[in-house]
């Protein structure tokens, strides 16, 4: 692309915006580091992984159980929501009658806009007592996974829908010319062609699941332990910050910022694998 002189103002505006966006991320990282530095300096990063139990007021800083719990609830939700979200999209795009497809799609979009605290309240008053009737206490990893599933399902469905819509028309025509059935067209042509977009949507949903705080805090029980069953109550890194930050001072407060750092690290790893997996290949 050649740069004409009229492009110059636009280029500078874009460049400044890009720098600001990057700088904000960097500033957040620096802020987290600065706030957690007192305790990192005193006890060392290693003890956050090796301490048995999280009792910051008794100088025990084990965050590892919460790291596993965050991963478990996030991965669990993605595993349940991905097939459901994809199925919903494929159904509305290719099989549902028109009168059903449009309202259905609107409803999925609406689901994406419901505030997380509403899901949390519903979970606390309906879902948790329901699970407790089978396996007390009810507030559990399972409740967290189910709530997150409902929350990220629309993200997966909507991004998959957009990715499928972006598949070039001639792919479909080619498929039709070869006499493929609708199922073969979907599984053999469309899904592989839209793979990058769909994967991107799933990773976006995973990031949301890892970062979600309020709803999980209300239904997951918040007991600090490494989950060994679906019915174990768990505490995620975000819930840990939200539960204790308002009441924390000194090392306790600083160690909560370490929770934040760890979460940020988790999301960074996710983003890196996203660029690996989705890596630039469009309609491959």
């Amino acid at each position: 692309m050649s740069r004409s002189r009229t492009d110059q103002p636009l280029i500078s505006v874009l460049a400044i915006s890009a720098v600001i966006a990057a700088a904000i991320l960097l500033l957040i990282l620096l802020f987290l580091l600065r706030e957690s530095w007192p305790v990192l300096n005193k006890v060392g990063i290693l003890r956050f992984f090796t301490d048995d139990g999280w009792y910051p007021l008794e100088a025990r800083f084990g965050l590892a159980p919460m790291l596993w719990a965050t991963l478990a609830v996030g991965i669990g939700a993605v595993l349940v929501a991905t097939p459901l979200g994809l199925a919903a999209t494929l159904f509305t795009r290719f099989y549902a009658p028109r009168w059903l497809a449009l309202p259905f799609q609107r409803m999925v979009a609406l689901l994406a806009g419901i505030p997380s605290v509403v899901f949390g309240l519903w979970g606390l008053t309906v879902l948790v007592p329901f699970i407790a009737a089978f396996e007390p206490p009810g507030a559990s990893l399972l409740a967290g996974i189910l709530i997150l599933t409902i929350m990220i399902l629309p993200t997966i469905a909507l991004t998959a829908d957009a990715a499928l819509a972006a598949v070039p028309e001639h792919y479909l025509r080619g498929s039709a010319a070869l006499g493929f059935s609708r199922a073969t067209t979907i599984l053999g042509v469309l899904l592989p062609a839209a793979k990058a977009g769909i994967t991107g949507g799933i990773l976006l949903a995973a990031a949301r699941a890892l970062g979600e705080t309020m709803a999980v805090l209300m239904v997951a029980g918040n007991v600090v332990q490494t989950p060994t069953s679906l019915f174990d109550p768990i505490r995620t890194l975000t819930a840990n910050i939200a539960l204790e930050m308002a009441y924390a001072t000194g090392d306790h407060r600083a160690s909560l910022f370490v929770s934040g750092l760890m979460l940020m690290g988790l999301v960074l790893v996710l983003a890196m694998s996203a660029s690996r997996l989705g890596g630039g290949r469009l309609h491959g």
Binding site: E58, V128, A132, P136, P137
Partner: peptide, 25 residues
């Protein structure tokens, strides 16, 4: 606090009341 073996950890009073109200045990 480290002696306590809890199944649910809550934030404010309201969350505690809702948790107990939703679980007979």
């Amino acid at each position: 606090n480290s002696d306590i073996k809890a199944q649910v950890v809550i934030g404010d009073n309201q969350q505690g009341i809702k948790t107990v109200a939703g679980n007979p045990g």
